[in-house]
Structures are given as C-alpha cells and as structure tokens.
Design a protein around this nucleic acid. Sequence first.
DNA 1: TACCTGACCTAGC
DNA 2: AGCTAGGCCAGGT
Length: 126
Amino acid sequence: MTRHARARFSPLPSGPVPNACERIWEATRRIPRGRVSTYGAIATLAGYPGGARLAGFALGCLPPGADIPWQRVMNAGGRVSLPGSAGTRQRALLEKEGVVFRENRVDLSVFGWPATAGGKLRHGGI
DNA sequence: TACCTGACCTAGC
DNA sequence: AGCTAGGCCAGGT
C-alpha cells in the first residue's frame, strides 16, 4: 500500500463513477461464506482479467471495518498472502467460517469459488 | 509521457 | 519443493 494510494482511497473513494477499487470490492462481496477466491478470479469478476495485482492493490485500499469479506481472497496457491498478524487474523476468520487449512494452505478444488474447473482457477498474467 | 508501486500469476530452473 | 524472472492491471507522481 503506497502512501499516496492510501491518502486517496482510505476514507473511501469519491466520485460518480465507481473506480477499480470499488469494483474489486463488489466482486469480493459476492464470495459466499465458507468459500474462498483468488486475486485473479476477483479481478476477472470485477472486469479486469489479468488484474490480479490490481485486486491486491484494491484490497489494500480497503478501509478497516468495511463490510467486505476480504479474508476470503487468497493467492492462486490457496495460501494467505497477507504478511504478519493480518495473515493470522485472516486464517482465523476463515477457519471460523468452516474453511479447512492444511499446512497453511486451502484446497481450492474444494473451497474455491467460483466453481473451479479442473481443480484450479485459471487466470492471472494471461 | 514515463516510471513506479502493490495482499499477484505462471513458467522455468 | 523452493526461488527467480517476466508479464498483466490501474492509479499516482
């Protein structure tokens, strides 16, 4: 999270047209309880195929206490990308929802959303 | 306009 | 199984 981006988005983005952050957040809201999605998938749902990094950026812009299940977004390997205590918190929240961690990893073929074809979500850098 | 950043992804070694 | 390099995206300076 860069300082300028934080200053710009932290209070909540303003403007008539929803920006990328808000669209990412809306996509994140659609993840059902007890399931997880990936940055790439979220970006695609939001209309930014290949914008996995953007998804991470947008979630980083997320103001604390927002009504968004940000904890249900993980990286393509089914691992928590959030460093430090935030990552621990994310895992705790997910486990409380019924998501099973196995060696710090989640089986996306079981808990992945949307429905994973072939066991793994195909997306990301092209 | 050009360059930089980020809670990323994939392919290769 | 773990690390590196290259490639996507939008937004800010």
